[in-house]
């Protein structure tokens, strides 16, 4: 099925759930740092085709050569997933539109006056909005204050005319990465998933549960 603006929400949900179940959903991971790269590896290992997005051409080249640069990722796992075609990386934001699921793992720093600096989340959300299409799931991983997903991201995404929970799905599922922790990793740490409408919650929970 190719979703269009006339496709109903239940059809969009059923279609995405089927792709998640079959691991044929195309997964985009935006930000290939200490959260994004381990996440990409875990999804690649269960059979998803993952495309990593990063502004850094250096990081993207390293990933495409199968070369690891994150302490919590095993070199040989990344190498095998890249050579097997399960993980690729790009700097080309136009490819965001190809993805069924988009996971955002970008920095959330503070300004010098200790105020939240959401510039990376906002910039990525605008890039997604430019290519947003019906049926996509957008899931934020970065730590932030309550309200970011619904009050900051949702209006940017809905400026396209598409509606969250109806045409596309929007969720927050925070990373719990503890760098250097050998016992609890991205693979074996439980995840919380929140979404403010039932359809988004359903697909986001299914996606999070997929490497169970």
């Amino acid at each position: 099925m190719t979703p269009s603006a006339s496709t109903t929400t239940p059809e969009l949900v059923a279609d995405l759930l089927a792709r998640i179940e079959a691991t044929t959903a195309k997964v985009g991971v935006i930000g290939l740092g200490y959260v994004g790269l381990p996440f990409a590896v875990e999804k690649g290992k269960v059979g998803f085709k993952v495309l990593g997005f990063d502004r850094s051409a250096t990081r993207v080249d390293l990933v495409n050569q199968g070369k690891n640069f994150i302490g919590d990722v095993k070199d040989e796992e990344l190498r095998a997933l890249v050579s097997g075609g399960y993980i690729q990386a790009t700097t080309d934001m136009d490819r965001l539109g190809e993805m069924d699921v988009l996971v955002i793992a970008v920095p959330t720093p503070l300004t010098k006056n200790l105020n939240p600096d959401l510039q990376y989340i906002e910039a990525v959300t605008r890039e997604i909005a430019k290519r947003l299409r019906p049926g996509q799931l957008i899931s934020l991983e970065s730590t932030t204050y309550p309200g970011t997903t619904d009050d900051v991201m949702q209006p940017i995404l809905e400026s396209t005319g598409l509606k969250a929970g109806k045409d596309f799905f929007l969720a927050y599922s925070p990373e719990r990465v503890d760098p250097g922790n050998a016992r609890y990793t991205t693979k074996n740490t439980n995840k919380v998933v929140g979404a403010s409408d039932a359809a988004s919650r359903r697909v986001a929970v299914a996606f999070t549960a997929r490497p169970s």
Partner: peptide, 15 residues
């Protein structure tokens, strides 16, 4: 662990 809204999940993480 599903929760009922994005804000609940955001508050959980920051807590």
């Amino acid at each position: 662990m599903p929760v009922s809204s994005a804000a609940v999940a955001e508050m959980t993480k920051v807590f």
